[in-house]
Design a protein around this nucleic acid. Structure first.
Lengths: 114, 114
DNA sequence: TGCATATATAAGTATATACTTATATAATGA
DNA sequence: TCATTATATAAGTATATACTTATATATGCA
């Protein structure tokens, strides 16, 4: 696994984005699988505009990508992002996002679209 | 090297502290060697109170330790900090602090005290 | 076409943050 | 003891941040 070096200022920008519980959880989630906005809302128990605003920050900075599938917009982690290797390391120290999806599945709230 | 897991909220707190160029540079510096306040001031070209206030945040959170040596107070990285293993990984992606000390040395501004 | 659902954006607001200047505290050395 | 140096703290301020509520946009479906 390669280690991409970042300028200090660039690294600080990325760390600042991750330095918020909501966004850090979001990244842990998309690191597991693609996730649509309404799923974020359900998992994080926050208002839809609040979720959208966090996602915009992550997308604008390039950490995540968005893709429309029908009426839903799915977010995924951007593996081409220059900070991706640092993010992956950070995520090794943070609880995995998978259990959130399992809980959603149990509650029947997981979106399935093709 | 061990990987200490953190709660998401705790990890976010730490990342937020590192999500500032000044503090991230400070951590990169103390990861190399102990550093006193006037050296931080010289290297970072910021006012002494601004430096002290950043150091207080890092110390209060446990990322760094302080130790008085005569008239100087030296700061060092706290290897016993629960987030230390994550920080070490992050620093692999960030420019090393060593060149700053070399520049100080050249300028004759490095403090030597025992 | 028209309504419902999913998402984004805009505007407003309370709080947090990173500085500034002024001052306090602590150690050194004449 | 007094002046100097190193550092911390306090108070003030401008800006950034993370929400809120209201509204706009886009898709799907009857």
């Amino acid at each position: 696994m390669e280690t991409t070096m970042l300028e200090t200022e660039r690294a600080a920008q990325i760390l600042k984005l991750l330095g918020d519980k909501t966004r850090l959880t979001m990244i842990a989630l998309v690191n597991e699988q693609d996730c649509c906005v309404c799923e974020f809302v359900e998992i994080l128990q926050m208002s839809q505009p609040a979720i959208s605003q966090h996602l915009r920050k992550l997308r604008d900075a390039g950490l995540v990508k968005e893709q429309r599938r029908g009426q839903w917009i799915f977010y995924s982690i951007n593996k081409a992002f220059e900070g991706y290797s640092m993010i992956k390391e950070i995520l090794k120290h943070v609880p995995n996002g998978a259990h959130h999806f399992e809980a959603l599945e149990k509650a029947g709230l997981r979106i399935r679209c093709n």
